[in-house]
Design a protein around this nucleic acid. Sequence first.
DNA 1: GCATTAACGCACG
DNA 2: CGTGCGTTAATGC
Length: 232
Amino acid sequence: MMTFNLHPANRAAKIIDAPASRHYTCLSLFNGAPEISYKRGELIFDARHQGQYIFLVTAGIVKISSFYQNHEMLHDYLMPDEIMNGEAVFSTQSQELMATAATNLTRVKKIPISSFREALEAKPELHQEFISHLLRSMNRTRERLLRLALLPAEQRVIHFLITHTEKAGRRVGFEYVIKPLPTHQEIGYIAGTGRQTVTTVLNELRRQGIVHFNRQYLLVRNLDALKAKAAL
DNA sequence: GCATTAACGCACG
DNA sequence: CGTGCGTTAATGC
């Protein structure tokens, strides 16, 4: 069943303001929406709360997970410029998925799914771009599962670092700043390992001069060296 | 070996 | 003073 009702509190989110140029993109649909900030661990949506929205991540990291026999299971994690809850455009069944902030200073924008659908119907050229967003999300999950099956824990941590640096690292000279930084606990959760392993791997990379970090941020000093250590 | 868990001390915010 | 980090020891595959 599809629901198109607009939430009264979010009538202001009747967004879809025409961009200056004639060129629409899926991301530009979020232009008029305010940013909402979350602290680590805070719930962004679940099946019964806020599920009627589609989100754009603008800062930090969001993890999509569900509970299976009281075990929290990671489905996907999202970084800036990625669309969240996109599947809900086609089905209202979000099958008990929930989204929580994995870092402090995580920020998202949201628009009602009904508005997003209307925009897709009004501008068919958006379809292709939207589908490519969904496919990228699928590929991320597929590759993460592949690494989980094939690579040792240290490699998975390194892969997380590379992916996150390229997606959300702020370039400073030849180095990259990652901020906000997930806790070792969260990195372990994403990479499928324990926090002690993450700590050990990061300290070893620091000893080699490839990264530098404290509790606020992480600096990738030598991305090429980091990539050279990655097996896949 | 490789990795996970428990446990404890420590240090930031 | 709680939460997260660094380390080590014990255990399993």
